[in-house]
Simulated assay, not measured.
Amino acid sequence: MKTENTVWHNQHISKGQRAALKKQKPALLWYTGLSGSGKSTVANAVDALLYKYSCHSYLLDGDNVRHGLNGDLGFSDEARIENIRRISEVAKLFLDAGLIVSTAFISPFASDRALAKAKLAAGEFIEIYIDTPISVCEQRDPKGLYKKARAGEIKDFTGIDSNYDVPAAPQIHIKTAENSIEQCAEQIVAYLIEHNFISVDNLN
C-alpha cells in the first residue's frame, strides 16, 4: 500500500548536474543469469575497471542486499518479484545521484526486468545477459546450491524447479564459458564507451 499525503520533493541539484560533475552518464547495468553463471564475478571486474578509469559507480550484489534491505524476503516467486522491485527503486535513486550502477541478481522473470527498465529514462537500463549453460553452472556450483536443489533440499530454485526467462534482446550478451572474466569486463566497458556513458578521457 502506498503512503498517503506524500508529495515528491524536487531538489535544487538535478541528476544532470550531478552526472556532469562526474563526467559520465548515469546507467543501470542489469546483470541477469542463472546461479553460478558469473554475474557477481563479472560485475565486480567491471566495477574495478570503472574505478580504475575514475568513474563513479556502485555495485548492488544480490546476496549482499539480502543481508540487509531484503533480509526479510524468501525465494518464492512473490518474494523474488518484491526483491527486484525494491532493488529497482534503490538503483533509481543511485542513478539520480549520477552514478553508474550495477545489479547482480538472477532476476529470472522478464516481466520484472521490464518493470525495472520502465522506472528509468530511455537508454539508462542496460540488460546484460550472463549466458552460461546450466551444466557449467552446476559444475561450478560455488555455494553447493544446485546439489541441494537436485536433492530436494531447496525449493523454487531457478533452472531446476523454477523458470528462468532468457532475455530476448539484451544490450550486452556475455558468455563466461567461452571468454575470460577480463574479456567479459572489457566487452561491457567497451559498450559504455561506444554509447557515451563514459568518456575516453577517463581512460587516460
Score class of each variant (00 low, 15 high):
residue 1 M to T: 10
residue 5 N to M: 04
residue 6 T to I: 10
residue 6 T to P: 00
residue 7 V to L: 02
residue 7 V to S: 01
residue 11 Q to N: 02
residue 13 I to A: 00
residue 15 K to L: 01
residue 16 G to W: 03
residue 18 R to L: 07
residue 18 R to D: 05
residue 19 A to H: 04
residue 20 A to N: 09
residue 21 L to W: 06
residue 24 Q to F: 04
residue 24 Q to T: 06
residue 24 Q to E: 04
residue 25 K to F: 01
residue 28 L to T: 14
residue 28 L to R: 12
residue 32 T to N: 09
residue 32 T to Y: 06
residue 33 G to C: 11
residue 35 S to T: 03
residue 36 G to S: 02
residue 36 G to H: 05
residue 38 G to K: 10
residue 38 G to A: 13
residue 39 K to L: 02
residue 40 S to Y: 05
residue 41 T to Q: 05
residue 42 V to N: 11
residue 43 A to Y: 08
residue 46 V to C: 09
residue 46 V to W: 06
residue 50 L to S: 06
residue 51 Y to T: 14
residue 52 K to G: 07
residue 52 K to S: 13
residue 53 Y to L: 00
residue 54 S to R: 13
residue 55 C to I: 03
residue 55 C to L: 10
residue 56 H to I: 00
residue 57 S to V: 07
residue 61 D to Q: 05
residue 62 G to K: 02
residue 63 D to F: 05
residue 63 D to T: 01
residue 64 N to G: 08
residue 65 V to R: 05
residue 65 V to K: 06
residue 66 R to C: 13
residue 66 R to E: 08
residue 66 R to A: 08
residue 70 N to K: 12
residue 70 N to G: 14
residue 72 D to G: 15
residue 74 G to Y: 04
residue 75 F to S: 12
residue 75 F to D: 11
residue 76 S to R: 14
residue 78 E to D: 11
residue 78 E to C: 02
residue 78 E to T: 10
residue 79 A to S: 15
residue 79 A to G: 07
residue 79 A to Y: 06
residue 81 I to V: 13
residue 82 E to R: 11
residue 83 N to G: 06
residue 83 N to C: 02
residue 90 V to C: 13
residue 91 A to S: 15
residue 94 F to P: 02
residue 94 F to H: 04
residue 98 G to W: 02
residue 98 G to R: 04
residue 102 S to E: 05
residue 104 A to R: 01
residue 106 I to D: 04
residue 109 F to M: 02
residue 111 S to C: 00
residue 111 S to M: 00
residue 112 D to A: 06
residue 115 L to V: 04
residue 115 L to T: 04
residue 118 A to P: 03
residue 118 A to K: 12
residue 119 K to M: 12
residue 119 K to N: 09
residue 121 A to E: 15
residue 121 A to H: 15
residue 121 A to M: 10
residue 122 A to S: 15
residue 124 E to I: 14
residue 125 F to V: 13
residue 127 E to L: 12
residue 129 Y to I: 05
residue 129 Y to F: 15
residue 132 T to M: 11
residue 133 P to Q: 13
residue 134 I to S: 14
residue 135 S to A: 15
residue 135 S to L: 05
residue 137 C to N: 13
residue 138 E to Q: 15
residue 140 R to V: 08
residue 141 D to L: 10
residue 141 D to Y: 12
residue 143 K to R: 12
residue 144 G to M: 07
residue 144 G to D: 13
residue 149 A to M: 14
residue 150 R to T: 03
residue 153 E to S: 08
residue 155 K to L: 04
residue 156 D to Y: 04
residue 157 F to R: 04
residue 157 F to L: 03
residue 159 G to Q: 07
residue 159 G to Y: 05
residue 162 S to I: 00
residue 163 N to V: 05
residue 164 Y to C: 10
residue 165 D to P: 08
residue 165 D to V: 03
residue 167 P to I: 09
residue 168 A to R: 14
residue 172 I to T: 08
residue 173 H to M: 10
residue 174 I to P: 13
residue 174 I to N: 09
residue 174 I to W: 08
residue 175 K to E: 15
residue 176 T to G: 15
residue 176 T to Q: 11
residue 176 T to P: 09
residue 181 I to C: 11
residue 182 E to W: 01
residue 183 Q to F: 02
residue 185 A to H: 11
residue 185 A to K: 07
residue 186 E to G: 00
residue 186 E to V: 01
residue 190 A to R: 07
residue 192 L to Q: 07
residue 196 N to C: 08
residue 197 F to R: 08
residue 197 F to Q: 02
residue 199 S to Y: 01
residue 200 V to M: 03
residue 200 V to Y: 06
